[in-house]
Write a protein that binds this DNA or RNA. Structure first.
Lengths: 247, 247
DNA sequence: GTAATAAAGTGCCTTTTTTACACTAATAAC
DNA sequence: GTTATTAGTGTAAAAAAGGCACTTTATTAC
């Protein structure tokens, strides 16, 4: 087998990861200041080349692990970029993934060792090649995904408060939400378990911790039921660029 | 340039196209009975290998042109498949595109010359490799896309009647819609122009033709406004497989 | 030419969902 | 014990979605 293919071109295939984190009430990206050519010294996404013997998903996982030391990262394929002039050198096909991680001090050090930094989503600098385009697409995909799937929890610690969760939604969608309506909607989904414990750092009164009930969620999806995690109606949307939306 | 890469593996990159058409009130796919190895005689999607000098989009366009003779096809990148054992022979990365075309007698002949046939979406046979997975994903993407973007018109002739349009929505979503509510919603979007002409094949009374006003639509999107093309509420969805939804 | 047939076209009312809005509760700091 | 700060709670009005039945138009058959 394989001889059918012998006439065809082969290509470099890269994996680039858009890594989201949530910290200090802000949605952030993990970006690299490149220590190697090409484009040494410029900002870029974390990436690497696909090996012959690994799947795309495995490759993306490997690259995420290299940078963060983490293993069970929530990760989804985003889009594949392949314009002829998209990078310097021989054209490389780039399959992109976005990842959601819980920012943590330990991982932070590993990331810093790679020259990586957390950058607020609205302060992303000029990145090499078409990486800014990738970031924009990842952000708009995250925004539309969060309506359909409870992925926000991937960005928060195991235990979180409702004000924290609301902050996250506000940071992702860049809009203020009504506290009462937010709580009503998010609780009526029925997948949050209230704990007896309170978080007392950020207020005198303290806010109760909640946990996302993953088992219950999986039970529902197995039955073929999916929920909307909408916190706001979205019949008419304003976007800065329709291209970013992939629409 | 290019020497930075010299250590990395190169890969075959294929393009596979999921081609949708609408005919006889049914949503259909253009499928091939393969005339060549590997898997000669089996059903598959139309595909081909990426050339060194073309972008992914150009490659997909080339392949669609080969099969249909058409040039201005609505086409979008769907997903990239790269499991190590996804095909026979050396692993090939497959970048998939879905396309929406207006079925036409002329094109039909060209397609048939390639051994291609239109097959109703719920009668799709077993396809080679992971092509059935691709079809399922394309269908669920089409379903969610049609809510956000007026792409249904890509499947209909220039002039179409409201009953035809409703049939299309019903075929895509596999559900019956109320005539009155459908017309109300689709017309209040304000992007359909009623013509003075009637279609008289399918009823004695005849139904007025409408045209999709693309200029008006582009004007809106340029302003950063997007509409919902929902014809039904979708807070709670039943799906047969969550994987197909890419969720 | 008139009756039968068949699909196109039209409006209103009910239910559900969304939104807007303001006070009380708990605790720590002083 | 007063003050300050954020957590937590319910209701009513507005908007959207959903359900439902008759009239119109033109052809065909007699």
């Amino acid at each position: 087998m394989g001889n059918y293919y012998s006439n065809y071109d082969k290509h470099y295939v890269a994996l680039d990861c858009i890594i989201f984190g949530f910290e200090g009430g802000e949605l952030k990206l993990l970006l690299l200041k490149r220590k190697f050519e090409p484009a040494k010294g410029e900002w870029s996404l974390m990436g690497g080349f696909l090996d012959k013997s690994e799947s795309l998903d495995d490759g993306a996982r490997r690259i995420l692990h290299q940078l963060t030391g983490l293993n069970d990262i929530y990760m989804e394929q985003l889009f594949t970029y392949g314009d002829v002039n998209r990078d310097s050198g021989e054209r490389t096909i780039s399959v992109t993934y976005y990842a959601l991680i819980k920012v943590d001090e330990n991982d932070r050090k590993l990331a810093e060792a790679h020259g990586a930094q957390w950058v607020a989503i609205n302060k992303v600098p000029k990145l090499i090649f078409d990486h800014n385009k990738m970031v924009n697409k990842a952000l708009s995909t995250l925004r539309s995904k969060i309506v359909r799937k409870p992925i926000g929890f991937e960005l928060l610690p195991e235990k979180f408060t409702l004000p924290q969760l609301q902050n996250l939604y506000e940071a992702i969608n860049q809009e203020q939400l009504d506290k009462r309506n937010f709580r009503k909607r998010i609780l009526e989904i029925g997948l949050l378990d209230k704990l007896d414990e309170k978080e007392k750092e950020s207020s005198k009164k303290g806010a109760f911790y909640y946990k996302f009930n993953k088992e219950k969620y999986l039970l529902y999806t197995e039955k073929g039921l999916l929920f909307h995690f909408k916190v706001k109606k979205d019949n008419l949307i304003k976007v800065s660029s329709t291209e970013d939306l992939g629409i």
